[in-house]
Design a protein around this nucleic acid. Sequence first.
DNA 1: GCCGTTTTCGGCCCGACTGTTTTCAGTCG
Length: 576
Amino acid sequence: MPIQNTDISRIFNYIADLLEISGANAFRVRAYRNAARTVEDQSRSIVKMLENDEDLAELPDIGKDLAGKIAEIAETGTLEMLDELEQEVPGELSKLLEIEQLGPKRVAALYHELDIESLEDLKKAAESEKIRELEGFGKKTEQKILKELKRVQDSSRRTKLADAEQIVIPLCEYLKKIDGVKQVTVAGSYRRRRETVGDLDILVTCKKDSPVMERFTSYEDVTEVIAQGKTKSSIRLRSGLQVDLRVVPEVSYGAALYYFTGSKTHNVAVRKIAVKKNLKMNEYGVFKGQKDDEERIAGSDEEEVFASVGLVFIPPELRENRGEIEAAQKGKLPTLIERDDIRGDLHAHTHATDGRASLQEMVEAARSLGYSYLAITEHSQAVTVAKGLNRKRLEKQIEEIDKLTDEYGGFRILKGIEVDILKDGSLDLPDEVLKKLDFTICSVHSYFNLSADKQTERILRAMDNPCFNILGHPSGRLINEREAYSLNMEKIMEEAKERGIILELNAHPDRLDLNDHDCRMAKDMGIKIAINTDAHSTDGLNHMKYGIYQARRGWLSKDDVINTRRVADLLKFFNR
DNA sequence: GCCGTTTTCGGCCCGACTGTTTTCAGTCG
């Protein structure tokens, strides 16, 4: 198995943890974390870059030393320096940092004073009430640690965006109704539309005497009040999700929204620009001048904050420090795709297979969304659990669609199939019947555990078939449930580009497949994307927005996405 | 450990809340 970028970034983060616990210089620690981030954000394989003799020290936050360390990892899979570090600090201690309340200083104290080396040791010590005796600890901290240990075991998972939405919308409604509350906005990774959120950050502006904090911490869904102050409170909800509320002054609203939307690395990078311009930037605004004589030059809205450091507005989805700041400086930000750009959906099932609605119901639902086309794409016969269509049943559905099409003037029902890519790379239905369709989506639904080489080869062989139009949910991952199968995505994309094959961005909130990185890579390579809901019900068609969010995070414009086209232009992509 | 239009040393983002203190260190975002 070749060394992947994530292997390298994991090692760097791990080193940073251990260095932190060993009391190393904080900026040295940060250097490792910054480098980990840089490596993770590369859409190309670092090992390949090395093979091409590229100088890794030219990457941001990677200098001569870390470039050498990356080369060592690429060659040996590990680092001599790490072995030495582990002699000094037990590696298990890095896991203790995942416990809230425990940072490097406390972990070091637990190790030196109580010989705690693992989560298990920690639990024993807390249960026997030894931790409260340590200097800097106390009874409350000990109890919080026990609680945290339990929570980490129960679920350390992030919450899917769609699930967070279910929780946050009623909470915001509740907050808006409280006396004196003016604005309520969810910031953080939720506003950046990350596929999962760790916690929720809500900002409010309100009149001075508003009881918003008290009402927030007494919301009916609260199981724990983690902190409560005048401007900041944190609660935990029944779902386990943590929610932070910040009350901010109106003159600072834009600065606070910007600050708490993040991402952290984006904010840090922009604050560095501010420092260079002799400005100070924080959640209260952008300030000019020295401490005693400060002047606020921006803060009430985000545009103003951006402008104060010479940037145009950067959409929240792009704020990940992946080149958006440089693009904004040069005026080269992409015009991101919007929900209204979508003219139709190219992936839907009916109750002929595992869908819940009839053909007619699905078509009606698509029409009511304002679409001008909908493709029906059932599973093929190999997916027996979904009653996948064989040749005969597919031909029957083709007839049905033709009949229904006559009834719906102006709305186009496209004839498609989600045909299985079999283990050997052949397609699950004969070409003669596939040729009768407007297009095909080809997907992997079996043998997820092949080696990267074999899986890649399998898909490439399928792509050799001239009936192959769209690669469905390309990585196969299910968020929080199943990892993507091993795959050389870059190779797949190169070949897709060559053959005019479209990649799907499956909009189902459990899939969001392609992910944001891969969308960006596809765009950079000039590959077109279809954003599809894979709807199994009329409601399922509404998942389109999640696909749009992910597409925006992947820098996609209207032009990059084929189902923003009129049907006549769309069909040209299928070359039939 | 990285970085550089105050450039090879000396910086490196900044503020709120908590618990354990008795003025602040540690942690978090």
